[in-house]
């Protein structure tokens, strides 16, 4: 794949005004509605939000895994400057699993049950690196070792049903990293796993990221996971980006009421034991239907601070502090930060 190399100051991936809409019998579903963000080489960007906010669709759109029709992807998705939306199917196939790879939420069902683990890892190598079956299997053993699966030589000939959920997710990671991708998209990689396994998988991803040098787009609803691994965060709500900031500022001084709500609804470990027990905050209501055009702020119906202005005029994304943008009429700018 003759992709242009990275140029100075140019992000690895830049998503510009991404719109992924689905035509349904009762109207157009605007799953992703004008989202822009970028990922620098080697960086970990988290995309967070509730179920149905469009974060998974965003991830699928980057690799163009959205079935078209009924889906339709508009905007631009540039990998080292090359717009993926203008690529042919053939070019896309050469990018998938090679330059950009993806791991999914459900390790139990994301592996093909009738093909050996080795074959599934080797397949990308044979496709993208022209390896022979033998070379691919040897490399698959190496990959299994790398992702911490013991007895890799034996495991490589096993089928997914012979592995536990955590092991299967390790295999998924092995598949994703086999071709040393520039970008790894991880869609809720730990959600379906036990807490202890979650920590192992996150540790593994962080470790491998340094070794392979891949950038990561981490899709999750779990702010604990975000705090653990991400460097920068995009908060999505109802198909739109509502806030973006580096990890520190976002957790310390969230600007958007939705982000504040998300952080407030995060349980603090041991808070009931230390005597500082606080009631877990919830965000009332549900994500609005993405089929209706919302004239004002998408979060207005659930926002405790919403005014008539919010319901009438959609707030633009504004830089509230250097590198910290939020879409809220009332979010304080730097210096005017209220507690």
């Amino acid at each position: 794949m003759a992709l242009p190399g990275p140029q100075d100051g140019q992000p690895l991936l830049s998503v510009e005004n991404l719109q992924t809409h689905f035509r349904t019998p009762d109207g157009v579903n605007r799953a992703v509605d004008g989202v822009s963000f970028h990922v620098n080489a080697g960086e970990t960007l988290a995309i967070v939000g509730e179920s149905g906010c469009g974060k998974s669709v965003t991830a699928m759109s980057i690799l163009r895994l959205i079935p078209e029709p009924p889906g339709k992807i508009a905007g631009a998705i540039r990998l080292n400057g090359k717009n993926l939306l203008e690529c042919s199917d053939r070019e896309m196939r050469q990018i998938r699993g090679n330059d950009i790879s993806m791991i999914f939420q459900e390790p139990m069902t994301s592996l093909n049950p009738v093909l050996t683990v080795g074959r599934q890892i080797g397949e990308t190598l044979r496709l993208h690196q022209g390896m022979s079956a033998k070379q691919a299997e040897d490399r698959a053993v190496e990959m299994l070792n790398l992702v911490g699966i013991p007895e890799a030589k034996r495991r490589v000939r096993e089928y997914p049903h012979q592995l536990s959920g955590g092991m299967r997710q390790r295999v998924m990671i092995a598949i994703a990293l086999a071709c040393n991708p520039k970008l790894l998209i991880a869609d809720e990689p730990t959600t379906a796993l036990d807490v202890t396994i979650q920590a192992q998988i996150l540790e593994l991803m962080r470790d491998l990221k340094h070794r392979v040098g891949a950038a990561i787009v981490l899709i999750t609803h779990d702010l604990g996971v975000v705090a653990e691994v991400a460097e920068r965060v995009v908060v999505m709500y109802a198909g739109k980006k509502v806030e973006e900031a580096a990890i520190g500022p976002l957790f310390r001084s969230p600007r958007h009421p939705y982000t504040q709500g998300l952080l407030g609804s995060m349980p603090k470990l041991g808070s009931s034991l230390t005597g500082h027990e606080t009631r877990l905050a919830e965000i009332p209501g549900l994500v609005p239907s993405l089929k209706a055009k919302i004239p004002g702020c998408v979060f207005a119906s659930r926002c405790p601070h919403a005014t008539d202005l919010c319901r009438a005029v959609a707030p633009a994304l504004e830089e509230k502090a250097p590198g910290h943008v939020a879409a809220c009429h009332y979010a304080p700018r730097e210096g005017a930060m209220a507690a």
Partner: peptide, 21 residues
Amino acid sequence: QDYIRTAKAKGVGQRAILFLH
């Protein structure tokens, strides 16, 4: 099924997806 999506995400061609996966 999810594993078909995985195969697509790996860059597997249409024919291999249909007749193998």
